[in-house]
């Protein structure tokens, strides 16, 4: 079976013209993601984790290397050589991206944010309405908030809305860029249960997380970003035990 996503030796650097600096963000990163897998990336901030996700989503211009993606529409394609139109199509129908910040459109209610995501895919309005309500309820977003603007939401609510808008499209590949940063433990648990559900449904996910205990038991594979390179990390049993103890402790607190 072909892997859903295969990253081969990608490098990315930035040239900052105003201060004449050249910054290397990641160096020869390789990664394989099989269908239905959940892979987590950890690492210090600034180590180039997000760069990998943004390179896959093509928010960053390709520089060196190849990213092969097994698409439903285009077959096995190299995302680094795909045309802009193909990327727009893939973003619309196959690849989702959740960042820790919600991109809010002014004067768009939470309900509309989710509905728009469905309408964008070409479904009719009735279907969009039903689906939007289902997913908002699933994410346990307060019903009173559905018709208000997300600008007044708390961080956790914004995040859940953000995840909802990405997940309602049922993407084949979901990129999660620190979806649990700045969340309290209860909200984290909600996101976690959601990720578990998505995983059961067969969504392939690549996520960046800070806390190892969150990833514990969730990830099939773990990578650590060190000196601009990825290293696969084998979870040692003791470490796993410690992590689970820690999370138990947190729960009791």
């Amino acid at each position: 079976m072909k892997p859903l996503l295969k990253i081969e030796n990608i490098s990315k650097s930035f040239t900052l013209h105003n201060i004449n600096r050249y910054i290397k963000a990641c160096n020869e990163v390789s990664l394989v993601l099989n269908k239905g897998e959940f892979v987590g990336i950890t690492g210090k901030s600034g180590s180039g984790k997000s760069t990998i996700l943004k390179s896959i989503y093509r928010s960053y211009l390709p520089e060196k290397g190849d990213i092969y993606y097994d698409s439903e529409k285009f077959g096995y394609i190299n995302l680094y050589k795909a045309t802009e139109r193909q990327i727009i199509y893939l973003r619309k129908y196959e690849i989702g991206y959740v960042s820790q910040f919600l991109k809010i459109m002014p004067r768009t209610t939470a309900r509309e944010v989710v509905e728009n995501a469905v309408l964008e895919m070409g479904y009719d309005e009735i279907y969009a309405k039903v689906e939007a309500e289902a997913i908002l309820a699933h994410f346990q977003l307060d019903k009173e908030l559905w018709d208000s603007y997300p600008i007044i939401f708390s961080g956790g609510e914004k995040l859940r809305l953000n995840v909802a808008a990405a997940m309602i499209k049922k993407p084949r590949l979901l990129l999660l860029d620190e979806p649990t940063a700045s969340l309290d433990i209860a909200s984290k648990e909600k996101v976690r249960s959601l990720i578990e559900k998505l995983k059961r449904d067969g969504t392939t996910m690549l996520g960046i997380f800070h806390d190892i205990e969150f990833m514990h038991g969730l990830c099939d594979k773990q990578y650590n970003m060190e000196e601009r390179r990825l290293r696969e990390k084998k979870l040692v049993p003791t470490e796993m035990k410690e992590a689970s103890q820690l999370s138990d402790l947190r729960k009791t607190i």
């Binding site: 930035f14 040239t15 900052l16 013209h17 105003n18 943004k54 093509r58 928010s59 960053y60 211009l61 802009e84 990327i87 727009i88």
Partner: peptide
């Protein structure tokens, strides 16, 4: 380029 690519990874001095 794609709009978010222009905004997040601008290449030219003027665009930056």
């Amino acid at each position: 380029g794609l709009t978010d690519q222009i905004l997040e990874d601008p290449q030219q001095p003027y665009t930056q």
